[in-house]
Amino acid sequence: MATRSTATLRPPPGDDEGEGSAMPGERPRPFLRRPRFATVALALPVAFMVLVYAYPVGAMLLKSVTEPEFGFGNFGRAVSDATTWHALGVTVRMSAEVAVLTVLLGFPVAYVLARVTARVARILSVLVVIPFWTSVLVRSFAWIVLLGDNGVVPRLLSPFTGDTAGLLYSEAAVVIALTHILLPFPILIIKGTLDQIDDSLVRAARTLGAGPVRAFLRVYLPLAFPAIVSSGMLVFVIGLGFYVTPALVGGPKESTIAVVIAQSVQVTFDWGLAAALATMLLVVAVALTLVVRRLTKVKGLVSL
């Protein structure tokens, strides 16, 4: 079975679409053509994804215009609701802060990882990848321990603040925890790009009269820039839709969009509103991701 007939591959002479049009002088085609094995190999996974993934997401999107009645009422409500705008503001602000912080902290690490020997880089990478592989829930829990009343961080800060009251359930707590959780992304992405930069370029700049700082700023950094921007945007996108950490370490006043969505589903049972918010979130996430993909190819996060 699964014999791929070479005839199916052949574009008919002088005619790219006319599959059946037997032209004079053209060889008759084999009568029986089975689908190519590769096509089957692709069709089955695609069918699975349509059924198990595209259908649920599509159904959800549909609910935004059909629940409780057909129309764009849900979007109207979402846009006119002050809490939505507040949640949106909080979400965008926090995501932006986290994106900037992770890039600022991640770049030096990526730089060092890209410039030490392969062996050392491998060992240090484990320190980056272990947090990456640790459950988001566990890492959020860690910050509850660290930032809670009488936790390590409030006590370290007590000489300045005067008390040991916790920082939990605040925007700051969410930003700190999210920075910790998303930091591996910029490190791994930027390192991937820095690995490609030829070291001799900086040396060449030095021989041409640039000091170490100027060589870095004028030669090295511009080459790293696309990765820096795209990893920052990736963090921003992930931050927009993040649910676990804001729900656990954030306070009720700083609900993010994801938290509002979950509440609409589980507490107020306003499925239409939840679906409308989720639709908007999805559109923004997809759009920003496409921009990121334009800027650089983000890949290779599965392994070191």
Partner: peptide, 11 residues
Amino acid sequence: VVPIIVLAMGF
């Protein structure tokens, strides 16, 4: 790319 909260609602 899809935020997990969106997937979660779909499911």
